[in-house]
Design a binder for these strands. Structure first.
Lengths: 275, 275
DNA sequence: TATTATTACGTTAGGCGTAAAGATT
DNA sequence: AATCTTTACGCCTAACGTAATAATA
């Protein structure tokens, strides 16, 4: 029967051309290779080499056999990788959310409830999240609206998040009790990176505004402190009231800015999201 | 690294469901299987089993791994078969002829010239022979006409064969010095099986005749002896003159019935057909 | 002489089976 | 009690490396 380890030696010989080079590459002795090549020949049940006294090379059959050997080794490797990947996927809970806030709550909950499993999360669009959950690529999805259309999908309401705009003293909107995104249109804004659907929502509702998207939190805070650019906050962060010194937080009343999140998962994963 | 023998044990276990059944099937002991299953688990680098105290079964990952194991074993088997087949093809000379007579001469010649190679022959139509030689499916072809159209094909004239019709005494054609197949049209004929293009030639030139095709040589001879049905002979058989007692052999003058055979082979095989 | 494959040989790791233990139905 | 898996242990094959041999360029 074929032996993958010997096939690896055979493939190495096919690449190197001589047993001695192959033995160096494989960190084994030449006699071992001599023997292994005989085993491979026996296993294939055909002559694979042209042997002269001081030289061994593949014959036509050997060249074919070497191709098959490499293919088998490749397939074996693929199999191992696939099995390991599957195994890992079983031990991982993957979450895709349309916004970061619900993750701040959900991820710790999951870690505590499933301490032996790895939690992996990412931000995506609603459509990507829905299809990933349906395909099974993703265990849990978090949307900003119910997911009623799809059969076999479990949907439960989760946390709410309300948007506020933070204006510096003296800003035209300073005295407002509430605003809509439409009112903000035209004012330039600071935004954080990686805030999910919020970015798109702002760009859509405030087409005349420019958005300065900050990746670094320190730089973001510095710009909030030193500029009069608008910025946002929500009640999902720890201290909404006094987060940005010297700024007022005004509720944004658009329905899209006051979100009821929904957790979805496929029916067979429903144990993941039930309390 | 994966080991195909252990994968075979793994696959057997996957089919049997218990180690003991698998051990019986494989004619090895149970402890060996216990060990091999651990090796397989190590090689895949993932847990593949649900172990209770006296029960072991595949987990989800194990089921996947078993599928891959079976696939790999199948691929390995295919590889061995393919290599052996290729090896055998190198040691075999395949000949396809449009008629048996040239084979009677050529096959002994080839056997003598290439005693270490197996000779395999078959009868085919001219078109099949040409394409098989071009594709390389077949090493040597024998046609009843030159093969001039194709590049890279070596063509050399071979033996000739002339057709005679054998009539019993008192037959309407008994006194003829020569005949054409057209003259024979309407008379029923005995034919042997496996005579290549001759069958089609007769059917084409003698559409009004019926042909009694005999597979068994003894039965054929018996019918020749006891009936007045026409039969044929050619000068390619050993004793054309006195082959069928009580019958006269009359030359058939159609050009298609007096054949110059041609041997063809691809250019790289020309050593096979040169004297 | 340097390089290469092969043979010979001694060591040892590991694969196998037997026997026994532990657990379940 | 019967069945099944696992552990323990001893045997022995076979895989490995070293050293030596043979042949070539």
């Amino acid at each position: 029967m074929l032996n993958l380890y010997e096939l690896a030696q055979f493939a190495a010989f096919a690449d190197c051309g001589t047993l001695s080079q192959a033995s160096e590459k494989l960190l084994i002795s030449q006699p071992t290779l001599t023997r292994s090549m005989r085993h491979v020949e026996d296993a294939f049940g055909a002559a694979l080499f042209l042997r002269s006294k001081n030289r061994i090379e593949l014959n036509e059959t050997g060249i074919l056999a070497a191709e098959y050997a490499k293919k088998l080794l490749f397939e074996a490797d693929k199999a191992v990788q696939a099995v390991q990947a599957f195994d890992k996927s079983l031990r991982t809970i993957t979450v895709a959310s349309c916004a970061p806030a619900p993750l701040w709550v959900l991820l710790p909950e999951l870690s505590q409830k499933f301490p032996e499993r790895t939690i992996s999360s990412q931000l995506s669009t609603a459509e990507e999240i829905r299809s990933a959950v349906i395909k099974g690529t993703c265990d849990i999805g978090i949307l900003s609206a119910p997911c009623t259309t799809q059969d076999g999908i479990k949907d439960i309401p989760y946390i709410k998040e309300h948007l506020f705009v933070c204006v510096s003293e003296g800003h035209a909107l300073w005295d407002r009790q509430s605003v809509t995104l439409h009112d903000l249109n035209g004012f330039n804004c600071l935004l954080r990176d990686q805030i999910g659907f919020w970015t798109e929502l702002c760009k859509q509702k405030m087409p005349a505004s420019r958005f300065l998207i900050q990746t670094d939190e320190f730089e973001f805070q510095e710009l909030v402190r030193t500029s009069t650019l608008l910025c946002f906050i929500t009640d999902a962060v720890s201290h909404p009231g006094r987060y940005y010194a010297g700024r007022r937080c005004i509720p944004v009343t658009d329905p899209e800015a006051n979100v009821q999140y929904h957790i979805i998962c496929s029916a067979k994963n429903k144990a993941l999201i039930l309390k």
